[in-house]
Simulated scan of single mutants.
Amino acid sequence: VTIIANLELKKQQLVLPKNALREAFRISHAIAEVTNVSSSARQPYVGVSAFAHKAGLHASAIKIDPSLYQHEDPASVGNDMRMLVSDMAGRASIELKSQELGVDLGGDKELIGRIVDRVKEMESRGFTFEAADASFELLVHEEVNGKRPSFFTIEHWLTTVERAEDQSILTKAEVTVTALGKKIICTGIGNGPVNAFDNALRTGLKQLYPELEVLELTDYKVRILEGRLGTGAITRVLVETTDGKGEWNTVGVHENVIAASAMALEDALTFGLLRQGRKPE
């Protein structure tokens, strides 16, 4: 893909039929799905981060003229420009990222300032929004509307891990949630506490939100943020979820890995229901 794109875009050599190069991103990722090989986010032209931008002044220039920091138009290969949100984010970064996610902040300086401050404060506690667009979008909705989009409230949860005499491991989770005015106690088992928690939560909520049936957790990453504290360190969890039509990422941070996972999973299901067209409570 890189060679073909370089020949066509840099050398103006016609290699493919006219406009066929615009399918490069879609075809590249379709092949990755079929072959079950993860595509590199940094792959030239067709990587999801090939046209990613970060930092305040950089974003300000992009807002004026994207070509100032892009060697080619992302659309020429079917890709899109991405804005990364981090503690380096300025007003321009936040505004552009919100537009990318379909949220118009209307140039409201006070609102944008609140979001910038919120992002920086949360990232100082270990959150990251560079790889968690869905959690960032929920944060923006919260600041715009005065409350976070919500379909359910997790009231209580309990996980247990037992080792039987035959050395088998049994992991259970019990989750109490309130949704649509109803209190539901749901249970689940899994190959670990987080998997059991996820199964329990989905089992209970699918009674009220059958749309959750199509949601699937596709990736789960854990990072220890303060290694010097060993097992008592702050933990960051990143979760990737899909509904078969697209993927989104959410983040949770806590001293307890299960609590951090619960935060990320709650965001994942909330965002998934928004994608399905559900209106928050």
Rank of each mutant, 00 (worst) to 15 (best):
residue 48 V to M: 13
residue 56 G to A: 08
residue 27 I to Q: 12
residue 31 I to L: 12
residue 44 P to N: 04
residue 45 Y to W: 06
residue 22 R to A: 05
residue 55 A to S: 05
residue 60 S to F: 03
residue 19 N to M: 04
residue 26 R to S: 07
residue 35 T to L: 10
residue 31 I to P: 08
residue 56 G to C: 03
residue 36 N to T: 12
residue 42 R to W: 14
residue 50 A to C: 07
residue 38 S to E: 15
residue 16 L to T: 02
residue 26 R to W: 07
residue 43 Q to H: 11
residue 30 A to E: 15
residue 53 H to T: 03
residue 67 S to V: 05
residue 29 H to P: 00
residue 19 N to R: 08
residue 32 A to F: 11
residue 56 G to M: 05
residue 62 I to C: 02
residue 26 R to V: 03
residue 25 F to V: 02
residue 31 I to K: 11
residue 57 L to N: 06
residue 34 V to L: 10
residue 45 Y to A: 00
residue 38 S to C: 10
residue 51 F to L: 05
residue 58 H to D: 10
residue 35 T to H: 11
residue 35 T to W: 11
residue 56 G to Q: 10
residue 29 H to L: 08
residue 45 Y to T: 03
residue 23 E to Q: 11
residue 36 N to C: 08
residue 57 L to F: 04
residue 63 K to R: 13
residue 21 L to P: 01
residue 25 F to I: 01
residue 63 K to Y: 06
residue 36 N to D: 15
residue 29 H to C: 07
residue 35 T to S: 13
residue 37 V to I: 12
residue 39 S to M: 14
residue 26 R to T: 07
residue 53 H to N: 04
residue 52 A to R: 04
residue 28 S to F: 12
residue 36 N to F: 11
residue 19 N to D: 13
residue 35 T to F: 11
residue 35 T to Y: 12
residue 39 S to F: 14
residue 37 V to G: 09
residue 17 P to R: 00
residue 59 A to D: 00
residue 58 H to S: 07
residue 42 R to V: 07
residue 67 S to E: 10
residue 20 A to V: 03
residue 33 E to V: 05
residue 42 R to D: 15
residue 44 P to D: 05
residue 37 V to P: 09
residue 24 A to P: 02
residue 25 F to Y: 05
residue 23 E to D: 13
residue 18 K to G: 01
residue 64 I to R: 14
residue 38 S to G: 12
residue 18 K to D: 09
residue 26 R to D: 08
residue 44 P to R: 03
